[in-house]
């Protein structure tokens, strides 16, 4: 998407991201800033699923498994270690390894797409039930109780790396979460321009075709799934820091369903759309939660129905169609050739 040779698809999100990063703290009060921090965390979670589902073609029905693992890994590690540098890394590493292990059996076992969805959903349900039933004092990892259905309150927050006395305040957390959102968004954008990204998209199109032109689809799917799992874990880690509390609901089906709805509403096959979906629907959750008239789950169900039936491609592709009069994002060429003159110059 270029106007006068300028890549608007890079410039617009970049400028918006930086404007939000530095502009919002000037205009918003602390409560609103905390809410925006939560939206940024949820947007990272949405990006993790948008990458593996929208680009890798892997529908992970139990994405909350990795979100919850990240949250619990951080909470348990930080209670034991007392300083957040290593726990932050552990919170990303644990779900990454879990995604790699589960993905290995799923993709190298050549399990079909439907069963991949079922397996991930089962994983989330197992984790939910296991963690939910560990409320006794006998269930602990090191100094940290697992907490069962009560969850883990008063989880120590992030501090400046290797400086436990210097904790991040809510303002710092905002900058961290918003900054990480920008990094994750542009990181994924970059990844999709690499050979790995092209192959991931091609696998989504047709796995067999990719194999007979020389790529190991199993390995690429595993890598895509693992990256998505790691990013969900990062979101989980930030989430527990945002509220200083983690409970088994991070593994819940509702949590998994929410992420799927965010991506679906925003637009499968885009990165920007799911972020918008996450922010808009998270905001709606907060607003609906503050009144007694409409049940939030009912509202989400209605939104899902409306989008599946009336806007199946999601907001972003439709907006782009309307604004730019172009073919939808998933259908248009994801990557285009460099100018012919440039190609010939390199020859």
């Amino acid at each position: 998407m270029k106007i006068a040779g300028i890549r608007l698809d890079l410039i617009v999100p970049g400028v918006c991201g930086l404007a939000l990063l530095f502009g919002l703290p000037i205009f918003l009060d602390l409560f609103s800033l905390l809410q925006v921090t939560l939206y940024a965390i949820m947007a990272i979670l949405a990006l993790s699923l948008a990458f593996i589902w929208g680009y890798g073609g892997i529908l992970c029905l139990g994405h909350s498994a990795f979100f919850g693992l990240g949250a619990y890994a951080y909470a348990i590690a930080v209670i034991n270690i007392g300083e957040s540098t290593a726990p932050f890394l552990i919170a990303i590493l644990v779900p990454t390894l879990a995604a790699a292990a589960v993905g290995y059996f799923m993709f190298y076992g050549r399990i079909s797409d439907v069963y991949v969805g079922v397996m991930t959903l089962t994983l989330a349900l197992i984790l939910f039930n296991v963690v939910n039933s560990t409320s006794g004092a006998q269930y602990h990892i090191g100094k940290a109780p697992i907490g069962g259905y009560n969850g883990l309150p008063n989880v120590p927050g992030l501090n400046v790396p290797f400086d436990p006395d210097n904790s991040l305040d809510p303002g710092d957390m905002y900058y961290l979460c918003m900054g990480l959102l920008i990094v994750v968004y542009f990181g994924l954008r970059w990844l999709l321009t690499t050979r790995f990204g092209r192959v991931a998209v091609a696998i989504r199109e047709n796995e067999k075709r990719v194999e007979f032109i020389g790529y190991d689809s199993r390995l690429h799917k595993l890598a895509t799934f693992t990256i998505g799992g790691g990013l969900a874990g990062l979101a989980g880690c930030l989430f527990v820091n945002w509220g200083a509390y983690v409970s088994p609901t991070t593994f819940s089906m509702m949590q998994s369903a929410q992420v799927i709805i965010w991506v679906l509403v925003g637009g499968v096959g885009t990165l920007f759309g799911p972020m918008i979906g996450a922010v808009a629907l998270s905001w709606l959750t907060v607003e609906v939660g503050s009144q007694q008239l409409i049940d939030a789950n009912l509202l989400f169900g209605a939104i899902l129905l409306v989008f599946v039936l009336l806007v199946p491609r999601g907001i972003m592709p439709v907006l782009i169609d309307r604004v730019w009069g172009r073919i939808s994002l998933p259908r248009r060429p994801v990557f285009t050739a460099p100018p012919v003159a440039a190609r010939e110059g390199k020859r």
């Binding site: 092209r198 998209v201 091609a202 199109e205 047709n206 075709r209 998933p330 259908r331 248009r332 060429p333 994801v334 990557f335 285009t336 050739a337």
Partner: peptide, 8 residues
Amino acid sequence: FPALSVYE
């Protein structure tokens, strides 16, 4: 790959 350009 129908969604990719000829070059890709």
